[in-house]
Amino acid sequence: MEADGLCHLDEEEAAPASSGVDAGSPVWTGKEALAEVEAALSHGLPDAILLRDRYLEGISHIDPVCPMRESEAATFVNGLWFDDCYSDQGFHYDGLGIFEEQRTASTWYLSGVANFEITTPKGAVFAGGGEFALDLQATATGTAWTSKVGGVYHEDGAADWLGEDGEAGLYVEGAWNGEEAWVNLDGGVGFAEVDLAFRDLRYDESVCPDSAQGELLVRDPGGHWFSLVVEDCSGCGTLSWHDEELGPACFPDALVPEIRRLAERQGAL
């Protein structure tokens, strides 16, 4: 309380505070953690189109009665199925799937809800639980989109994220103006060996063609997170673990190419 009887915010005291919890030590070093990110990114980040393509392939082996549709008018480009049956091609459909897609010359909207396992006659499983969506619109100069992948998905034998017992809660927003793209990532992606997260991680070619800015996080096996915040075009910043600064580090080399790949894939009408 000051002499004037008023309370004043003490700027020196208002410093960033950290958790008072003793988290011990990380299992990985910072270098190991970033190597895990690099390895994970080689499987590719999930996107709604990946799931859409796999889903449509999976339901291309139905027959008139298996699986049961919600309404007679339902097709599988707009509809719900719910069953536990074998189609005449020998595919096993177990669970529930809802999928909707509308595509025009200037828009592409798709959304799916998954709670199913689709098994091939040879026993390979494509399973999903969660939801995914893409909303892509043409703009005056290019396209703009938002997409979401949430849930747990798996496909036997897949070389990409689906083969990694993939989990995600990933929101991607982006735009492409014919020459340059920007992409924003928020959320997280789980691979077999590592979990990644992004907090307002932005790649803007018009600003920094070779680097992203924002926060990349990777979860240490001990349950706490490494965090790398980059604020400029260098691609490098300060790595911390459980709010403890560890020193300088850089985004893995695979990050920007993977973001570009996502942009090209999801930004194309």
Partner: peptide, 19 residues
């Protein structure tokens, strides 16, 4: 992401901790 799916409800989803 779906509150009626066993694969979602059964497991913890560490990748979503920062959401």
């Amino acid at each position: 992401f779906d509150i009626y799916t066993p694969v979602e409800l059964n497991s913890y989803h560490a990748e979503r901790e920062q959401m």
